[in-house]
Structure formats: C-alpha cells, structure tokens
C-alpha cells in the first residue's frame, strides 16, 4: 500500500513535466482551455452509508442517504478538471434487534481536482491521467438516546494524489434490427467510461474531545470548545463513471462513488459511502467544428 502511495505521489508531482508539451505557449494553452468541453452537471445521488463512531458505540450504523448533486466538469484529451458538491440527508440505524437506535444526519461533501493525461497514453484506447484531489465531508447528526453525546459534528478534509483511467469509445455506424414486431435502431454514438482513484496524503478532521460532550444546549460549556482539530486519518475514494453523449453535445452521466473515511483520534470515526448517481450534463461552451456527437 505504501509503495503504491509513493508511486502515485511521484507521478502526481512529475505530472506537469510528463503531460505538458514544452512547446505549448501561453496563448495556445488559453485557446485549449477555452475550447475544452465544459459541462454543468445536475443530478441526484442515492447512497448506502455505514457509520461507526467509537466515541459512543462499537456498532456500525447503516442506512440510506439521498442527496442533490451538482458539478462543474471539463475534459478533453489533455486534461480533466472538476468540482462537485452533494448535499443530502441520511437516516442510519444500528440493525439491532432491539428498538431502533438511529442517527439522523444532514451532510455536505465537496471535491475538486485536476488530472493531466499522460502524453504517452493520449492516443491509446485507455488514457491515464494523474493529478490531485481535494475532498471533504461535513455531517451533522443526532441520536437523542445518547444523552449529552447525542450530537455529532463530523468534518474531514483530505488532499492527495489522484489517478484516472479514461476509456472513450464510440459506435461509428448505426444499425437496425427487427425483434418480432419491434424495430430497434441504433445510431452512431459516443461514450466514455472512466475510473478515478483518490488517495489521501494529508487529512484534517475535527472531533469531540475525550469525554465526547457534544450537547449544544448546555450553556456553561461552549460546545465548540469540546472539539479539537487533528492531522491524520483519511478519505479514500474511487469513482467509476459512464457517460452517454447526446447528439446536441449534452450527455447523461451515471456514476458509482465509493468513499471510506477514518479519523485519527482515540475514539475513531469510520464512514463508508456507496453512492449511485444519475446526472444530466449540460454543455456550457460552444461545440467545436471537429467534435462529432
């Protein structure tokens, strides 16, 4: 794991040298950036969350999270850039056979990053990109059965290298088939399949202090004083996405995101999220003459 970590980190640091041609002038870069297909992505995300806060319980709580998702996304054969946000609500219970003990939560997550596609792979079937990623997860949750420990404010921010694999493909010619009485027509179409792995190098989180006193209604204790920031822990994540381009340059995007998070304090917080997203990509800039959908 450590070796892989180092390799990807080195790749990320060397990225500009590997990926960017020295001959590219500033003007060319500007023109490229302007021409790079950019999208506004709006959609929804349905997740299964698994949470354990060992400050209050050794048990995992699990349940759904429903979120609204929005992103800005740009990609061409040289570079991928993105910023995304999801805002959602969750209801998690401990799967116990006794009366349900549950956490309800409101959470917001942000991520942004850039990946530069390696020159050597730009013309290959599978392009490889390396770069950086910053991701964060903020959650406020309540479980009133836990007395003065019944509130949880989770904050994790992680920065690290990122590696991506991109597999654009297309159906160049259409076809027509008759199945019984139904005519099935398939038109020429562009698709893209991608996979991204974000590896944490530096993570900061805030957690309640030792006694886990998080009751915000107690006036003689300032609740924020009972939290402390610490370095350590991680947010490890992957994203697998499939894009189905429409004739007008817009697209449909389906993704599966997996996140695993852990804090570094004595009583660790573990969160895993399996998220399935359906999104509509709205093309923001003009379609270039040489682009074909």
């Amino acid at each position: 794991m450590q070796k892989l970590y180092l390799i990807v980190l080195m790749l990320a640091l060397c990225t500009p040298g590997l990926a960017q041609s020295k001959a590219e002038t500033k003007t060319q870069k500007k023109a490229l950036r302007k021409a790079r297909p950019s999208y506004l992505i709006i959609g929804s995300q349905f997740s299964h969350i698994k949470l354990r806060d060992t400050g209050t319980s050794p048990r995992f709580y699990e349940g759904p999270r429903v979120a609204l998702a929005s992103s800005i996304y740009s990609e061409d054969s040289l570079k991928l850039g993105y910023f995304y946000n999801t805002t959602g609500v969750s209801l998690l219970d401990d799967n116990g056979d006794i009366e349900t003990l549950s956490w309800t939560g409101v959470s917001v997550s942000f991520a942004f990053g850039d990946l530069w596609k390696l020159k050597a792979t730009r013309e290959s079937k599978i392009q490889i990109g390396v770069g950086y990623n910053v991701q964060s997860f903020f959650q406020f949750r309540t479980n009133l059965r836990l007395s003065n420990a019944g509130f949880g404010l989770d904050n994790l921010i992680s920065l690290g290298p990122s590696v991506g694999f991109f597999f654009p493909f297309e159906r160049k010619s259409g076809w027509e088939k008759k199945v019984g009485f139904i005519n099935i027509k398939a038109q020429p179409r562009k698709y893209a399949l991608s996979f991204r792995l974000n590896i944490p190098a530096l993570t900061v989180s805030s957690r309640p202090e030792y006694a886990y006193l998080t009751d915000v209604i107690n006036p003689d204790i300032n609740s924020l004083d009972t939290y402390s920031f610490q370095l350590g822990g991680y947010i490890l994540s992957t994203e697998t996405a499939f894009v189905y381009y429409l004739k007008n340059g817009n697209a449909l995007r389906f993704h599966y995101r997996w996140q695993a998070m852990q804090t570094s304090d004595t009583f660790k917080l573990n969160i895993a999220q399996h998220a399935y997203g359906i999104n509509f990509m709205v093309r923001l800039n003009k379609i270039n003459r040489d682009e074909r959908y």
Binding site: P58, R59, S124, I126, F165, T238, W258, A260, N270, A272
Partner: peptide, 25 residues
Amino acid sequence: RGINWLLALLLLAGCEDALFEEEKA
C-alpha cells in the same frame, strides 16, 4: 488488457471492511 485493468481497480471499491477495524463480537 485495459478492460481487465479497469475491472481490477473497480474491485478496490467497496473494500472498507479491510480498512476498518472489525466490529466487536
């Protein structure tokens, strides 16, 4: 070969059980 790579990386996802400490019996 590329597809195989993608599939292998996909397997990384969902492996939180290997990362998190086991639940107490």
